[in-house]
């Protein structure tokens, strides 16, 4: 119960973001003529926010196989990196492991990167709970969007900023450790550069390549505190 409370409280920012962005996705899909069934099916078959928006545009347009494959790899490339710090954490998740891996969105990954004062089996319960909660917010958000599309003209009003704030807080808290500070600032600089210098569509891929090259080329910081 204590862990559920903790997981729920931690996931509130994700709830705010997912309900809004999920609703925007539902409206977008409805507007593009995707059926309600396919819209919700994507929440389970794909469960990756930005890729679902892209897939909405692919459906009913008979795209080539290679187009679908390349778009998916490009948009979701970053997920390749999310597992690396979690291989040890998720090792003993047993029956839940496949679900945890499947449900590893940006927001859920970010929540797994906090310092948790829990023992391992409780941490796994915590990860399962935030994954399930986050996915349920996303599904509910999509359903709200489908309903809104039918009844009211929809406009997002800024509540989705909660997700930016969540990433920022988790980044900010991680940066309290002096060892990682250099890497953190380097990441901001590299990502800003990639945003300014390259087309937006390639932002994630180019940033991740730059980060990988940086880690290989530049030594990490040491702990002074």
């Amino acid at each position: 119960m204590k862990i559920f409370k903790r997981a729920f409280i931690d996931s509130v920012p994700v709830m705010m973001g997912y309900l809004v962005v999920g609703a925007a996705y539902g409206v977008y899909a409805g507007d593009a003529g995707v059926s309600a069934f396919e819209t919700i099916a994507m929440d389970f078959i794909i469960f990756a926010g930005s890729m679902q928006f892209v897939t909405v545009r692919l459906l009913n347009h008979a795209p080539a196989f290679l187009t679908v494959v390349l778009l998916t790899l490009l948009v979701n490339f970053r997920h390749l990196f999310y597992g690396l710090p979690l291989i040890e954490e998720y090792r003993e998740a047993k029956g839940w492991k496949a679900y945890l891996v499947y449900a590893l969105t940006d927001e859920t990954f970010a929540l797994t990167q906090q310092k948790l004062e829990l023992d391992r089996s409780d941490r796994i319960r915590y990860y399962v709970l935030i994954s399930l909660l986050d996915q349920s917010y996303w599904v509910v958000g999509s359903i709200i969007g489908l309903v809104l599309y039918r009844f009211i003209p929809f406009s997002t009003n800024g509540v989705e900023f909660a997700m930016t704030a969540l990433f920022f807080v988790l980044f900010f808290e991680a940066m309290r450790e002096s060892r990682v500070r250099k890497d953190g600032f380097a990441s901001l600089v590299l990502c800003l550069l990639s945003l300014v210098l390259f087309p937006k569509g390639y932002f994630v891929v180019i940033s991740l390549i730059a980060i990988t090259l940086y880690i290989i080329a530049v030594k990490g910081g040491t702990n002074h505190e």
Partner: peptide, 17 residues
């Protein structure tokens, strides 16, 4: 890489969002 990448990905997600 896996030890140093979390903070850098969080930074990326801040800019990304």
């Amino acid at each position: 890489l896996s030890k140093r990448i979390p903070v850098m990905i969080l930074g990326l997600l801040v800019i990304y969002s």
